Simulated assay, not measured.
Amino acid sequence: MRLLFTTWAWPSHLYALVTQAWACRAAGHEVVVATQPALVEETGRCGLPAVAVGHDVDAVAMVRGYALGARKGGVPGGRGPRAAGMLLAHAESMLTGLIGLGRRFRPDAVVYEPTALAGPLAAAALGVPAVRHLYGTDLMARARNVLPGLFAPLAARHGLEAVDLYGRLTVDPTPPSLQPPTAPPAVPVRYLPFNGGGRPVTLPPSGRPRVCVTWGHTMAKLSDRYFLLPGVVRALHSAGLEVVAVVSAAQVPLLGQLPDGVRVVVDAPLHSLLGGCDLVVAHGGAGTVLTALHHGVPLLLVPQLPDHAGHAAAVTAAGAAGLLEAAEVSPERLREEAGRLLDGGTARAAARRLQEEMRRQRPPSAVTADLEAVTGRPA
């Protein structure tokens, strides 16, 4: 098979596709990743062939728009319409280039992460199946009645009608317990963490409860005030916990003066650290949540964006996390919730149940057979 993977230029969305793309290449299939120019270099660092299509969109400004409650790009209404407008802008920027690449590459299927909606449109134009690859709780399921109308003009410009933006097949690395009942049927796959190509860091054993604090990559890009990690680290360190702050190099200047004894780890893959941790305190990104659950580690989540809130709500409902609204974050509340999650054992047990649920799923190598079936093209 020839498989065209695609995502817009957001690293965490790319990382969600990496292990499946690797599995397909290892099975003898030809893989190309198409993305906006800003992500081509990072795709290469992930060990995958990359081709730039379209042009870059200022995603940070658009996310900042709905995070701050402003109107951006002429898209009126609440956060949902503004977020959908952002996805449309990405699709518009990529679609012509993606179709052109497809005509040269001649893929048997287009594999896309659920917000890269140029993917199913290009697949329809090329006459091949579209395969949706989730990266967490299927939050796009609730937009099923909204997206077709929003994307219809773009489809029509390319001579397309009634394109199913949800693809012929969905691949899902999320434990079923975290999916809403409205989610469409999916092929389950085991979640294997990939958090970037940095050097792994292994933590030595500790005599105290160890808490990993990470705030992903998005929030610091939007505004310093959304990057809550320094205050969280200080609050938890004062409770006598061993605190490990996992940050990117770009976030280091935002840390300020941290207390002595706080370990700061820079540009290391999160999955290399979490096996030695007792709790993860984070923003609620899908990759962070699933990586923690892969290790059976409970979480304390402070979501600030709608998708983070959706992932956080799912894992909290499953009993594996505590949840704090950003407005209620204080040193006292952070210490109280962290202590409850560390001392009770209930959240740890729930996280381990989800870990076992994930381990029972088939590995990405097995999903290549489903891709072969949907395309009718074995290796």
Rank of each mutant, 00 (worst) to 15 (best):
M94E: 15
L95Y: 10
T96W: 00
G97T: 08
G97M: 08
L98W: 03
L98D: 00
I99R: 06
I99Q: 04
R103A: 08
F105E: 03
R106F: 01
P107D: 02
V110C: 10
Y112N: 12
Y112D: 08
E113D: 14
P114D: 10
P114L: 07
G119D: 14
G119M: 09
L121A: 11
A122R: 05
A123L: 13
A123D: 15
A124H: 13
A125K: 02
L126K: 09
L126V: 04
L126S: 09
G127S: 10
P129Q: 00
P129K: 00
A130G: 15
A130H: 11
V131Q: 11
H133N: 12
L134F: 00
L134D: 06
L139Y: 15
M140Y: 15
A141P: 01
R142K: 09
A143W: 14
A143N: 03
N145W: 13
N145F: 04
L147H: 02
A152I: 06
H158A: 13
G159Q: 10
G159E: 12
V163H: 11
V163C: 03
V163G: 07
L165A: 04
R168P: 00
T170S: 15
P173V: 06
P173I: 08
T174K: 13
P175D: 09
P176H: 07
P176T: 00
S177M: 01
Q179D: 14
P181K: 00
T182R: 11
T182W: 11
A183C: 02
A183M: 00
P185A: 14
A186H: 10
A186N: 02
P188E: 09
P188G: 07
R190D: 00
R190W: 01
Y191T: 04
Y191R: 04
P193T: 07
F194W: 13
N195D: 15
N195V: 09
G196M: 10
G197N: 14
G197P: 15
G197F: 14
G198F: 13
R199D: 14
R199Y: 02
P200E: 03
L203S: 04
L203A: 08
P204Q: 06
P205L: 08
P205S: 12
S206R: 14
S206A: 15
G207F: 04
P209Q: 14
C212D: 08
C212I: 05
C212K: 06
W215Y: 12
G216Y: 09
G216A: 00
H217I: 00
T218A: 14
A220I: 11
L222A: 02
L222I: 11
S223K: 06
